[in-house]
Design a protein around this nucleic acid. Sequence first.
RNA 1: GGGCGCUUAGCUCAGUUGGCUAGAGCGCUUGCUUUACACGCAAGAUGUCGGGGGUUCAAGUCCCUCAGCGCCCACCA
Length: 852
Amino acid sequence: MKLAKTYQPDLYESDIYALWEQSGAFTPLKKGAPYSLVVPPPNANGNLHMGHALSFAMQDIAARYHRLKGERVLFVPGADHAGFETQVVFERELDKQGKSRFDYSREELYNQIFTFVDQNRDNFQTQIRKLGASVDWSRYVFSLDQTIVKQAYATFQKMWQEGLIYRGERLVNFCTFHGTAFADIEVDYQEEQGHLWKIRYPLSDGSAELVVATTRPETLLGDTAVAVNPSDKRYTAVVGKSVKLPLTNREIPVIADSYVDTSYGTGALKVTPAHDQNDFEIAARHDLPYVSVIGFDGKMMHNVPEPYRGLSVKEAREAVLKDLKDQGLLVGAEELTHSVGHCYKCATLIEPLLKEQWFIDIKPLAKNALEAIRAGKLAFMPKSKQAQLERYLENIKDWNISRQIVWGIPIPAFQNEEDPGDWIYDDRVDQEVITVDNKHYRRDPDVFDTWFSSSSWPYQTLGFPESKDFHDFYPLSLMESGFDLLFPWISRMLMLGLYVTNDIPFKEVYLHGMITDAQGRKMSKSIGNVTDPIELIAKYGSDALRIGVITGQTPGNNQPFVEAKVVGGRNFINKLWNIARFSEGVIDSFETQDATPATPIDHWILQRYALTKQSYLKLMDSYRFYEAYETLYRFIWDDLADWYLEASKVQPNKPLLAALLKGALVLVHPFAPFVSETIWQTLNLSTDGLLSGQQPYELNSGNKEQADQFEVVKDLILEIRSLLTATNATKVKLYYRNEPIVASFATLINQLGGTIAVEDGEPGQGIALSNSGLSCWLDIDQESVDHYVKRLEVQIVEKQRLTRQLTDRLANSKYVSQAPKELVNESRAQQVEAEQTLENLLQEKMRFAPHD
RNA sequence: GGGCGCUUAGCUCAGUUGGCUAGAGCGCUUGCUUUACACGCAAGAUGUCGGGGGUUCAAGUCCCUCAGCGCCCACCA
């Protein structure tokens, strides 16, 4: 025996992976239809989590399946520098050493993080290998590789030249703890209890007062107007006048703007352009000044009245409220629930602060993306995500791409030291100051939002613009990712892809849901419900994890992770191994391709193989991997193992068994790459080596009539087993009369049915069988008959129900006239059969219990 | 305030354009040292497909409605 008694994944997996890698099996073939996908690059610094396990599983199944179809598959691995994410992790490390980012220069910090990330490289790549991802490592890309950086610069320059990049002082979402701005979609909004305070603003002429409502009283120090709705009769008289801003010496105008909701609060809105997005927009419409009162450190700035200077926002709020109250300007407060933005890493309140940043004028790009989607150039799975993306693109806002961190791609822009309005594009970012036309320009200290560079991933990784890969494999066939990346990544890849390459970046988008814990909660370190895929691999094997994670997988739906699914996968792997072990013991040579069916069971299994393969191919082509797996599972376990292998113990067709084993291994390979390959290699199933170079076997598809004969035998065996169990009878003989099929399968029936003999005999020596329609009976002793009668009664009730159902259906004239003819005929046949069976059951019951 | 998804066996979930007596894994019951497998074999039990209404010869599947859960978006000061 070459195959060991049990399959121990850890003994084989790393060797098998190394073999694949060395043999070049992951490199695209020279011919065949192209099929391409790139890995959504995981954070180079981190460990892979269950989401990655799922994502890699889906992608690798697709990649291996398309290889099996003889296609030229390109599967590109990569890693992302994940700017902010990684810097946060690194700063935590610094914190442990009692240091902070402020202890280092920008370059020192960058280099330290680079080393930090680089040290994780082996760990990171090993994990991907453990998952069995059949990626082409020779094409591995890191998002800070020079080619990627250059491409980011090229894109930025192109946008710069075409006027799509602008530098603007806008409100940005600023985390005062991390000291950086975020894009709108990165802000984490949460419902919170708060107060709506009402504050008196006296008119300058003393004639009256306005009461404004606010959740942020401290920002009144930066108010530059009070706004009311132009149609609000209550305030018509005061529009155009001015009010005295409390706690300050300033006077600010009362303006009319239709943004103001007359029914909210008091209908009078304090306008703080530098600290509120809506107020910012109102100010733009009315040409109001912007007064910043909160600094980037989260403290009140020096332009506020002395008592408040340097206070934190929270302290300032308390102080302002106290002073207002003391001056009788605080009218009241009511409770309210409102949604407040937080930093998604540290939960610090996000302050909208005025800052100069680089923005992309995104609307023209979004328009092109929308056109491509609406023209049906991309297929979304699930389909519902397409509409969601369209709505997002319709309402998209300009994209702030500046980040105030060091870990990222420096923005290639320089500012004239003499003239702050003079910015130039230049990619000499390794220099802090450059001289152009005798003028000194200083480098923008910011880096790009990571999503800016990673949104070029589909073409960057292929070596755009001139490489052969780009020519051969772009657009990508598939983009597989979590649906949480639909807006931050998928949408931007689509927009940038169209902008830079003039073509869509991918043809199909498959979006998986989130893997949650068994209770449906998000996996998080703080709850402590995180499952580590690498640990699961150590426990059950990589194939088992893969199967476990795709069990029940459907696009767009979250999946609670339950370990039992992995156990199910492990059990199946064990089944495969043992099918192979059995085959090894029976088969003399695996070399023959002669799979000629000899008996009805041969025809039957070949039919099952053909049907399975047909449905498998169809399901795989439409990314319904779990259903394809299930179909295959049923064939391998139920048909091949439970029936064909058992039958092979009586009368083996060795060449056919060999062919079926190979056929099953090829089909199962995308789902269980390691075990299928291990078996293939160990048994030396082909000379051309790797299974990934194989294609699904075309076997004789069997003869239906012959196959149906075996179905009859199968039914007979099932009935025998069932009766023997029901009666608890032992040492029972099966008799038959004038049934050549039973005669020819006598040995098989005897063995699989669990009788002691199958003989030609006189009727009436025991219990007659009813299901198979054969004239057979079991020689069962009288004591067992009571059990049998009970069972008959259950069956009679069931058959009566079925007969009634079918009779009703056929009595319905509309059904007979309107339903498809085949269906009606089928119902008739079923009715006849059911009635016959019922009749047999009733007669049988009469024989044994005539009194009832 | 909009939009979307989910609700099917004890648990976790499949179930394509409506059509065999609604399925799987794990769990459960009973019996098995059947020489590939106890990570197994065999025989079983468990569902008014969230409630109600409608369309249809036929509804888990389509439509309406109600309820519960979850997610996303949004400028409620």
